[in-house]
Nucleic acid binder design. Structure first.
Length: 276
DNA sequence: TCCCAGGACTACT
DNA sequence: AGTAGTCCTGGG
């Protein structure tokens, strides 16, 4: 068991759309990480974490929820650059960018193209159930996301059977390229944001939006960001900017290295607050 | 039963 | 360089 200071917003961090595989329980949340299942429960000033694997639990949790980063400071920096975003930042106070596993994130966001959240979650759960390791935790069964080694052995049809639809071949091809080292997830860490965008978009099934999500959610490249309908709405309402190219230009010029975070705050504000 | 939402690719201009 | 048509699933 691990007890950490409750200094972030657990609920919105987990449910704001960054991750697909979590369960709401009557006491909190269950989240499946790369190598373990964790449960999180809020208890006044603390968050109680239990896990199927207690090894390095504190480091893993701090890394996953990005707890060593000073988000308040970044928020203040963003407000300095542009006061109109203040409401969005105040609304999103405590929201943290989850540091996800690159491999699972890659597959998740390839599946996310032209797809809805429940369907994406369903596919990821099927892949995990069929090919991942079973973990018993607090008397329930969970399945870890399969290893790369296991996934490279699968066929196009194996993926099709996990209800990923026409994306089956994209996943299959990505797996083949990981196997022959044409796609090296590790190498992305050292690339600049624009280089890593170009690199990822070379692969089939990965366009601008999918690549941006992978870089923001798995590599913490905060100057990269996906633009969706909610962000467009915010931009239209606040600045009267509509087309995507102008939105990108404005965002990068205004928020610079924190563009991804600024966009995430706008998204969260527009989607989850009453100001629609 | 049909129709729709949801990104990226392909094959056209 | 720009864009219509297509791919599939789940839900209304």
């Amino acid at each position: 068991m691990l007890k950490i200071k409750n200094n972030f917003d657990l609920k919105s961090t987990i449910t704001c759309g960054q991750i697909f595989r979590y369960t709401k329980t009557d006491y909190g949340f269950i989240v499946i990480l790369k190598d373990r299942v964790i449960s999180l429960r809020e208890d006044k000033d603390y968050i109680i974490v239990n896990s199927s694997n207690e090894n390095n639990l504190k480091e893993i949790i701090f890394d996953y929820f990005d707890l060593n980063r000073d988000y308040d400071k970044i928020g203040k920096e963003i407000i300095k650059k542009d006061s109109k975003i203040k409401d969005a930042i105040n609304f999103s106070k405590g929201l943290r960018m989850i540091h996800q596993d690159p491999f699972e994130t890659l597959i998740s966001y390839i599946i996310s193209q032209n797809n809805r959240v429940p369907s994406i979650a369903n596919s990821l759960n099927l892949i995990s159930k069929n090919y991942g390791t079973k973990v018993i935790f607090e008397n329930n069964e969970y399945y870890l996301f399969p290893s790369i080694e296991k996934m490279v052995t699968l066929t196009v049809n194996d993926f099709r059977n996990c209800k990923v639809g026409f994306r089956d071949k994209y996943i299959y091809e990505a797996m083949q390229k990981i196997a022959n080292k044409e796609l090296n997830l590790e190498s992305i860490k050292d690339m600049s944001s624009s280089d890593s965008l170009k690199y990822l978009m070379k692969f089939k099934g990965i366009g601008m939006k999918v690549a941006s999500c992978i870089l923001l959610f798995a590599y913490q490249k905060f100057d990269v960001y996906p633009i969706d309908t909610w962000v467009k709405k915010f931009m239209k309402d606040c600045y009267n900017i509509e087309d995507e190219k102008s939105i990108r230009e404005f965002t990068l010029n205004t928020y610079r290295e924190y563009s991804g975070l600024a966009i995430q705050y706008m998204f969260n504000y527009k989607r989850n607050s009453n100001d629609k």
